[in-house]
């Protein structure tokens, strides 16, 4: 058991190092000269030299890489050009908003998907199943950069129920959470339905029914508990889609999170901020997936980190 955990930690460490390497290389993908791109053509040569030295771009690649990793180990993410402040400070400001949005969207997706998926499976083949399946298909296909503006049009502009954008109280969270959560809700509904359907075909369900248990007890106590496992893994994986989608959703609603910081930084060519945002979101995603693995072993005693 301990050995397996150690092996998993080691492989996670390799992946984290790989992610850091890729993020480090991002700035070297800038076509031409990143310093030129950042300062524009009219910059004075002295400024260029200063920026190049500040970014470490005047040194050999290997040295830059080691230096980058060493600074990461100290949580030093560099300085933003635009804001002239440490990048870590900017991220710390923006992170709560993104967490709030992601958690709200996840909660919303679960609240919609679990009852809908279970009901669809229980009424397999009926009109309710058809409706749920159709809604799920629609939810997957609808892009959140379209759903968001439509929701703004209806609920903010026509009905005047919610703010158009920004982060100001609970009302402003509703539309972004719905926008971001819809896709996840759709995928999860499909997954819950498939998973419950599969479990309902098992022998122990027939036994439970045969011994006279009511349909709700069978569904809740016997089916759902086992149907949870594949759903749990999927939630961990789909959280990636959620975090990636948060970038677009935050832009639509001017939600002051890490995603909109990333887009602003891209447009301002503030590369240290771009790197830091990508790194932070990816590492958050990795951690959540590692956590899902652990929860999985806890929920299912048959699996002990094989």
């Amino acid at each position: 058991m301990l050995e397996a955990v150690a092996a998993r930690l080691a492989s996670a460490a390799v992946v984290v190092l790989g992610v850091c390497t890729l993020v480090f290389l991002l700035i070297h993908l800038v076509p031409g000269d990143p310093v030129e791109a950042m300062l524009g053509e009219g910059a004075r040569p002295a400024d260029r030299v200063a920026l190049r030295a500040a970014l470490g771009l005047d040194r050999p690649l290997g040295e830059q890489y080691v230096d980058y990793l060493a600074r990461l180990a100290r949580f030093d993410l560099g300085v933003s050009f635009q804001e002239r402040r440490p990048v870590a400070e900017l991220l710390a400001e923006r992170l709560p908003a993104t967490l709030e949005l992601a958690i709200a969207a996840l909660a919303l997706a679960l609240v919609i998907a679990i009852p809908l998926g279970v009901l669809a499976a229980a009424r397999h083949g009926g009109p309710l199943d058809g409706g749920a399946t159709g809604l799920a298909l629609l939810g997957i296909a609808i892009p959140n950069f379209w759903l968001g503006p439509l929701l703004i049009l209806v609920f903010s502009l026509w009905l005047d129920w919610t703010p158009v954008s920004g982060r100001d109280g609970l009302a402003s969270l509703i539309l972004p959470a719905v926008t971001l959560g819809t896709g996840l809700a759709a995928v999860l509904t499909r997954m819950v339905r498939a998973s419950v359907l599969e479990v309902l075909g098992e022998d122990y369900i027939r036994t439970a029914r045969a011994k006279g248990l009511g349909p709700i007890t069978v569904l809740w106590r016997h089916a759902l508990r086992n149907a949870w496992l594949p759903v749990l893994t999927l939630i961990g994986l789909q959280l990636g889609g959620l975090l990636g989608g948060a970038v677009i959703t935050e832009t639509v609603f001017a939600w002051p999170g890490v995603g909109s910081l990333l887009i602003d930084a891209i447009h301002a060519r503030d590369y240290p901020v771009v790197q830091a945002c990508v790194l932070l979101i990816s590492l958050a995603y990795l951690s959540v997936n590692a956590l899902t693995d652990l929860v999985y072993t806890w929920v299912d005693p048959r699996i002990r980190l094989g």
Binding site: S11, V14, V15, V16, G18, V19, T21, L22, L26, I27, L29, V30, P31, L239, G240, G241, L242, L243, G244, G245, V247, I248, L262, I263, I266, H267, Y271, V274, V278, I281, S282, Y285, L286
Partner: peptide, 20 residues
């Protein structure tokens, strides 16, 4: 595994932003 660690469209956004 390293490429899978970038959630969803994130890496594409960063790359497209940097490549122009």
């Amino acid at each position: 595994d390293v490429f899978l660690a970038f959630p969803g469209i994130l890496l594409a956004i960063a790359l497209a932003g940097i490549l122009g």
